[in-house]
Nucleic acid binder design. Structure first.
Length: 510
RNA sequence: CGGGGCGUAGCGCAGUCUGGUUAGCGCACUUGAUUUGGGAUCAAGGGGUCGUGAGUUCGAAUCCCACCGCCCCGACCA
């Protein structure tokens, strides 16, 4: 063990900040990036993580941007209870099926001391569940609020936490408790509800690609992968660097299923009582996991500029108190000037790191935290009127000497350039790892662990029927979606030989 | 819930098989000196109910039993 430590010390020059590397152990690498970038920490509560300030700031940036988009499309925010009466869940049969197995249940309302230990007491007449999602309790309220077609549509979003008692958890990707937003809308016609469902899918697509820089495939979930209780489920699917798929967001057309379960009825123009048509749509803190796995490298997080808690970090370099005062003043001026600029509707976020630690240490910390631009400023630079600039998405050793005024003037366009470049890189990676396959033998070979290590997405003709699960499940492959943008003519299902009109995306997934 | 592995300092581990003074090591942390433009060096320090409980023993991190927790692989999933 001691030898190993010595080796790593000696090899510092070629050592990566994150070990193991992506190549060596992708799953472990992912965990290490989260720890090294200070995004989150495991808590003592099973399956629940602590989102640390750096991670929470990313979530706040996500919230802010999404919230603006929700409001721009006519939605308002509200808040519904964390606890849901057990009987509500029973109202929608498929919904029960989907969530009953992973519900935390509240059965008591106080504690008493017994034999020196605290034990639950005061049993509730009806158990409450901690919301795994809020369709039922929101539906119950909508049924009170909706009487007339004039009360529709209702376009409400809620930012909340939910809990699903998952068997296996991974930070950000799947935790028992997670933060999300859930939109719940009610409409008087199916067309309007479907339009809403697809509008929000578009919002998610645009947000994922332009803010998170994650390229996504917009599609409909095959019938056997639908949200419990939904008529149609739409999804945006992303590819991670290990070629696995990540469901990054979903939008559901719920038809009248939940309206019937919750009695959301209204008197229409024609004088008839009708059930409303509802939708729901959500994205969660999982998106942060997606950001990590899409962009980061073996030196840690690479954070897209638009959601980076700090976009530019200035590291002052000085060796004595006189220099220090001068350098800090100089940094303050640059900080003030750059902060005047607006990027993605917010002032550019600049931070001066004047902590009393070595500058090399600082640099590496900010590298691991994924700050897009690092600027080192010492007397040498001040005298030459230049700044020493490093960009996180480039090789870690590259430094640019840029005239101070030029840097300030171009800061926003550089940030935006980084944002575009990491998106393009991720998109090229994804596109290079999607293959069209037209027979089942090739399909089996593609997902054979011994023949192919870097499995990507398969685009293939397939029938939208649960029957294909028997072909793909043994390969640990899932049917991700039926892309909405189909360029294909009619074809033949590679599993069943049936005539179909659409291709489907298959992949291993998170 | 089935199969496998593991609980020793904040983190990572050695020691357990074969019981024996004061339980070690690396990183991190504190202090001082020398350093400082890409993860500094040296020195001196602080930090432990060895997962919990009950046993065997003169003596338990080590052996026995029970329990708890965590990780990995399955089934389940935003």
């Amino acid at each position: 063990m001691n030898n190993q430590t010595n080796n790593t010390n000696n090899n510092k020059a070629i050592k990566t900040a994150i070990q193991p590397t992506r190549q060596e152990d992708y799953a472990k690498w992912y965990q290490e990036v989260i720890v090294a970038s200070d995004l989150a920490d495991n808590s003592d509560v099973r399956g629940c993580m602590v989102i640390k300030p750096w991670g929470y700031a990313i979530w706040e940036a996500i919230q802010q941007d999404l919230d603006r988009r929700f409001k721009a499309t006519g939605h308002v925010n509200a808040y519904f209870p964390l606890l849901i009466p057990l009987s509500y869940l029973e109202k929608e049969a498929e919904h029960v099926e989907g969530f009953a197995k992973e519900c935390a249940v509240v059965t008591h309302h106080k504690l008493t001391t017994k034999d020196g230990k605290l034990v639950p007491d005061g049993e509730l007449s009806e158990p409450l569940i901690i919301r795994p999602t809020s369709e039922t309790i929101i539906g119950a309220m909508y049924s009170k609020w909706v009487k007339s077609y004039r009360d529709l549509p209702i376009l409400i979003n809620q930012w909340a936490n939910v809990m699903r008692w998952e068997m296996r958890t991974r930070m950000f990707l799947r935790t028992s408790e997670f933060l999300w937003q859930e939109g719940h809308t009610a409409h008087s016609t199916p067309d309007e509800a479907m339009a809403e469902t697809l509008t929000m899918l578009d919002v998610y697509e645009d947000f994922a690609e332009n803010v998170l820089a994650i390229p996504v495939i917009k599609g409909e979930k095959p019938c056997f992968e639908r949200f419990p209780g939904a008529v149609n489920t739409f999804t945006i699917e992303a590819m991670m660097q290990d070629c696995k798929a990540l469901q990054a967001g979903t939008s559901h057309f719920l038809g009248q299923n939940f309206a019937k379960a919750s009695e959301i009825k209204f008197l229409d123009k024609d004088g008839e009582q009708k059930y409303a048509w509802t939708t729901s749509w959500g994205v969660s803190t999982r998106l942060i996991g997606g950001v990590i796995m899409t962009h980061s490298d073996d030196n840690g997080l690479i954070c897209p500029p638009k959601i980076a808690p700090q976009q530019i970090v200035i590291i002052p370099i000085y060796h004595n108190d006189t220099d220090k005062e001068h350098v800090i003043q100089y940094c303050d001026k640059i900080h003030a000037e750059v902060s005047e600029f607006i990027y993605n509707k917010n002032p550019v976020r600049v931070h001066i790191d004047n902590r009393d630690i070595r500058s090399g240490e600082k640099s590496w910390q900010w590298i691991k935290k994924g700050v897009p631009i690092r600027v080192e400023i010492g007397m040498r630079d001040i005298n030459q009127d230049i700044l020493c600039v490093s960009l996180r998405h480039e090789d870690v050793k590259i430094k640019h000497n840029i005239k101070k005024d030029e840097f300030i003037a171009n800061a926003v366009s550089v940030l935006d350039g980084i944002q575009r470049q990491i998106f393009e890189k991720a998109k090229a990676f994804r596109d290079n790892n999607i293959v069209d396959i037209d027979d089942i033998t090739k399909f089996n070979e593609f997902f054979n662990d011994e023949l192919n290590q870097d499995r990507g997405f398969v685009n293939a003709y397939a029938v939208n029927d649960v029957i294909i699960e028997e072909f793909i499940k043994p390969l640990k492959v899932t049917a991700r979606c039926i892309p909405l943008n189909q360029t294909n003519a009619d074809g033949v299902c590679i599993f069943t030989g049936k005539k179909v009109t659409q291709k489907m995306i298959f992949a291993r997934s998170y």
